[in-house]
Amino acid sequence: MQSATAPFETDYLIIGHGLAGATLAWELRRRGRTVLVLDTVQPDSASRVAAGLINPVAGKRFALSWRIDELLPAARAFYQTLEAEFGSTFFHELPILKLFSSVREQNDVLARSADNRWGNYVADPAQPLPAVPGLKQPFGGLELRHGGWVDTEALLNALTADGLQKGWLRSETFAPELLVAEAAGASYAGWVRARRVVFCEGAAAVRNPWFSWLPITPNQGEVLDVEAPALPTDYVLNRGAYVVPVGAGGRVRVGATYRWPPFALEPTPEARQELAERLRELTDVPFQVTGQRVGVRPAVRDRKPLLGVHPQLPTLAVFNGLGSKGVLLAPRMAQLLADVLENGQELWPEVNILRYHALYSAAPAAAHPAP
């Protein structure tokens, strides 16, 4: 690809191939644009460690997930398209049993259910949950519909293999000092020239010279891989932890913990104990922990993604902050950002980085690299 006489030309240079970079690269290629993605596979990246849970009703208040009516159809269509392309199954739609943790929570939620705020995402709250062998449900709960989980590791492996074979992905660590951004485009390392550069670096964005002013706070999470052959695999379980069936033989993934800096370099015994105890609170079937993984999420203070173009360098853009809901958010967010980059359309204000422009204005001069 490298030439001594002319640089390699591409419409987009994308930095990072987690969920954000992978979905954006696919969306831009679908629109006929050329992309070059630079990334090195990190087995314990947040995108690969996550259980990929899609939950239409989330949080302690049992509220509908933000913009679920728009995000879920886009996510389902994206994963189904890739399933057809690669001949694999990535999206596993399963009902979620959201269990109450107390009588008070049970009463509060059932009282609020009278206004039918959940639509068809929740089965009749007045009906008891299915009788699941081994499941502890002393206070009942809700059966959530149209949720499930995405096998993010299999998805990213398929896209990575495709990219390496076809040449739109290079296994290479990005060096920011080699990027030169100008009004008409950007050049990198003397061998590639792009119309735009999009940073999809996840938690590593805190070290990005152009976007370090954004309020990304890395958050570390740990998950357990567990074998529980007696545990039914036709539901996702959720109370204090999620339990996602991920394979034959009763294999499930249990997560996740939340830890703010400083981070542990390896999986911790404290997280293993915490997650195992959460699982024991959900079920009385025997289980065996077979693995433990740790990753770092790119969390944002208002829990909304970060999309947009640099305030002074329109050649540069960012796609980040998907947090723990990346598999639900990424496909529609990629469409929105592609509309901005290709057609100049307006972003949703909730996700536009302009909502944090005051932080850019207040940042020291060192955070504003010259073109």
Rank of each mutant, 00 (worst) to 15 (best):
D69T: 12
G247D: 11
A6S: 15
S101C: 13
R145H: 13
G16H: 01
P232L: 00
A256R: 06
F8R: 14
K60Q: 14
L179Y: 05
A363E: 06
V309K: 09
V340S: 03
E153F: 10
E172H: 07
L82W: 02
F199D: 04
V285C: 06
V109W: 02
V49W: 01
A363P: 10
F91K: 02
P269N: 03
Q42E: 15
R29K: 05
F199N: 10
P371T: 11
V109Q: 00
A20W: 04
P218Q: 01
A63E: 15
Q292F: 00
P215R: 00
Y188F: 11
P371H: 03
N320V: 02
A370R: 07
P305M: 07
V180S: 12
I96V: 08
N238P: 02
G190I: 02
L336M: 14
G87Q: 03
Y79W: 06
G249V: 05
R48N: 12
V132H: 05
L97F: 02
P73R: 08
R170N: 10
Y12P: 09
E182K: 12
V294A: 13
G148L: 06
A248S: 15
N219V: 14
A184K: 14
P364V: 09
R332L: 14
F199V: 14
L224Y: 04
L336R: 09
T89S: 14
K304W: 04
V122W: 03
A365Y: 05
G32A: 07
R104W: 13
T173K: 13
R117I: 08
L282R: 08
H368L: 02
R117Q: 14
A154I: 03
L237A: 09
Q42T: 15
S113I: 00
L94E: 06
A363N: 05
A114C: 09
W348I: 12
G221Q: 05
V252T: 12
T81C: 10
A175H: 12
R29S: 08
A58N: 14
N55I: 07
K304Q: 14
P176V: 02
P176Y: 13
G147E: 11
K136G: 05
G326T: 01
